[in-house]
């Protein structure tokens, strides 16, 4: 008995977070899991009749004439979302890594100021910030007015309602999620390590590759996770900046719980997305621990 208590004591640290997530996330999620095997209710919600249609629907959809056919439209939507989320990760990394590195090199007081400067824009609602980008990007917007005013172009350049605008919007939304973890990892970067490396390799970029990047990698991984997963479900930037002409996973799920009134399908979509992401993360974590283990022993 005391042995058990002793063993439980070790788990006290993980207990509060685990409790919150198990009770207020896992339990609701169980409801969603059950929903995914039920039949859609007439006005949203579910009917308690078992059905696997929500899952078969992912690949085999009925057309307007009720003929079941192999349908790739949901796969297309999924790959589009994955592609957009990948671009968001790469864009955030390209912009965020140098910024995080630069901030980490500053004296401590300035470091904190810069970090807080990153979060200040977020005091403004995301919707509003995205609208401001519309004012910047559209045909009659700031950039085009500037270009035309300077005589650099006669016709406005179309920037709004393009895929580039979606990418820009997503990077804008998620780049802090990349900068902050990388900063947290780099902040402890020991100057002496770099000095030693410089003595050995005598090149800034070699040092970056062989010393700094490996040290930053836990931060980059954390940042990539924090950007990729939310970007996968993002719909504000695709809707507002992209024009909402192509569905994303986020808007597809959203639709099922609103106008489409197909909660089981929305639930099934969620289950599939979650499983895929979870499996990827677990494979990654196992792999990483194996590598670390090899390093330690």
């Amino acid at each position: 008995m005391s042995d058990l208590l002793e063993r439980l004591r070790h788990y006290i640290g993980v207990l509060p977070a685990t409790f919150m997530i198990v009770v207020f996330m896992l339990a609701p999620l169980t409801i969603i899991f059950v929903y995914s095997f039920l039949t859609p209710g007439d006005y949203g919600g579910v009917k308690f009749e078992f059905s696997t249609e929500a899952y078969t629907q992912l690949l085999f959809q009925k057309n307007l004439f009720d003929e079941v056919e192999f349908d790739t439209s949901y796969l297309t939507i999924a790959f589009r979302s994955i592609w957009v989320a990948t671009v968001a990760v790469l864009g955030s990394l390209a912009l965020g890594f140098p910024a995080a590195y630069y901030i980490a090199q500053q004296p401590e007081s300035r470091r904190n100021t810069l970090l807080l400067l990153i979060t200040i824009p977020f005091w403004t609602n995301l919707l509003i910030r995205t609208y401001c980008w519309i004012l910047v990007l559209r045909d009659t917007g700031l950039i085009n007015n500037l270009l035309i005013g300077l005589g650099l172009t006669d016709e406005p350049i179309t920037m709004l309602y393009t895929e580039g605008a979606i990418a820009l919007g997503l990077v804008y939304t998620y780049v802090p999620f990349m900068v902050l973890p990388i900063y947290a990892a780099l902040e402890r970067l020991d100057k002496r390590l770099i000095e030693a490396s410089r003595d050995l390799y005598a090149n800034r970029w070699t040092t970056l590759r062989h010393v700094t990047l490996p040290l930053a990698s836990p931060g980059i991984v954390a940042g990539a996770i924090l950007v990729f997963i939310p970007a996968l479900g993002a719909f504000i930037a695709p809707d507002l900046l992209g024009g909402g002409k192509k569905l994303m996973l986020g808007s597809l799920v959203q639709l099922q719980f609103s106008a489409a009134r197909d909660w089981p399908f929305g639930s099934a979509l969620t289950m599939v997305i979650m499983s895929v992401v979870l499996i990827c993360l677990l494979l990654f974590a196992v792999n990483q621990r194996r590598n670390e283990g090899g390093f330690q022993h």
């Binding site: 609701p28 959203q254 719980f257 969620t270 997305i273």
Partner: peptide, 19 residues
């Protein structure tokens, strides 16, 4: 445990909301 802690990230917001 690590995976569990990341769980809230993996669920689309509207689903979390409804659930």
């Amino acid at each position: 445990f690590g995976g569990l802690l990341l769980l809230p990230l993996m669920i689309p917001e509207i689903v979390t909301a409804v659930a």
